[in-house]
């Protein structure tokens, strides 16, 4: 398994797009840090830091694309056969791809958090402290980490769907579009969702609600009564749906003709 994950990571590091997108992400963080320094009224330094200088949505789009292509690339280049007719089982191949994407997600969060800390130290050394309170007994630093963790979890909910679709359609366009729609879906239908949830309590357990987990952590007072859910319920729901979608994808992958 270690070998397989290493091979998947090797392919990722050899793609030019990996390095271009890393450069782009760092560029965006730098841009927003400077904006926040120059226009602190519009781009409030504490909030900007908490949002990792706008890195999170970019990471989500990157990861949706990466999860789709790590599967569909093999079909597109005709390499899936070669990858499969080795001693490794189908399950091992798929799990190694999940793990590689998991590590890749970590890579992005570590990079973006590191860059955010660096920018804070360079541009807001005296004006902003990461230990500054952010309500609920959290500092902006711990709050930032908590939101990152939550967005990591709900990102994986999206990715588990993307993996499944990439597997079914062998086509990254379909998988990526559904992933991105999924990302916006929750914001678009929040109103409808809250109406439904007020009417039938069980409706809150649908997967779209789960993607609001990071928003709920960012504004607990606003979302909790609206969705009628606690943080731990959201976490649990996310984990169950992730397991479910990955499980279906695993089943499909094991049974398909290549």
């Amino acid at each position: 398994m270690y070998t397989l994950v290493k091979q998947e990571s090797f392919k990722l590091t050899k793609k030019v797009s990996t390095w271009i997108s890393t450069g782009f992400l760092v560029g965006v963080e730098i841009l927003f840090a400077f904006l926040s320094r120059i226009y602190p009224q519009t781009f409030v330094p504490a909030n900007m830091f908490e949002s990792l200088y706008f890195a999170r949505p970019i990471i989500i789009f990157y990861m949706i694309a990466a999860a789709a292509t790590i599967i569909t690339m093999e079909f597109q280049y005709g390499t899936m056969k070669q990858v499969l007719y080795r001693r490794y089982s189908r399950g091992q191949i798929l799990v190694s791809k999940w793990l590689a994407i998991f590590l890749y997600t970590l890579y992005w969060y570590v990079i973006s958090t590191g860059v955010a800390l660096l920018l804070k130290a360079m541009l807001f050394h005296h004006t902003l402290s990461i230990h500054q309170g952010a309500g609920d007994g959290m500092s902006i630093f711990t709050r930032g980490l908590a939101i990152s963790a939550a967005s990591f979890v709900s990102l994986w909910l999206l990715l588990s769907v993307v993996f499944l679709l990439a597997n079914l359609f062998r086509n990254s366009a379909a998988a990526v579009s559904v992933g991105i729609i999924g990302y916006f879906a929750a914001y678009i239908v929040t109103q409808l969702l809250t109406i439904l949830i007020q009417k039938w309590d069980w409706a809150k357990w649908n997967p779209v609600t789960m993607t609001l987990y990071p928003s709920m952590l960012a504004r607990p007072g606003y979302y909790q009564p609206l969705l009628n859910m606690q943080g731990w319920q959201m976490l649990l729901g996310n984990l169950i749906y992730i397991a479910l979608f990955l499980g279906i994808g695993y089943y499909v992958f094991n049974r398909r003709n290549v």
């Binding site: 030019v16 280049y77 390499t79 007719y85 001693r87 189908r90 049974r255």
Partner: peptide, 24 residues
Amino acid sequence: TPQKHESLSKVGALIEYPGIYPFL
């Protein structure tokens, strides 16, 4: 079987056309 095939460690193959990663 498609699910399990450790004995393929003894096998090398090229089927139809080679699968090539253009970026490698």
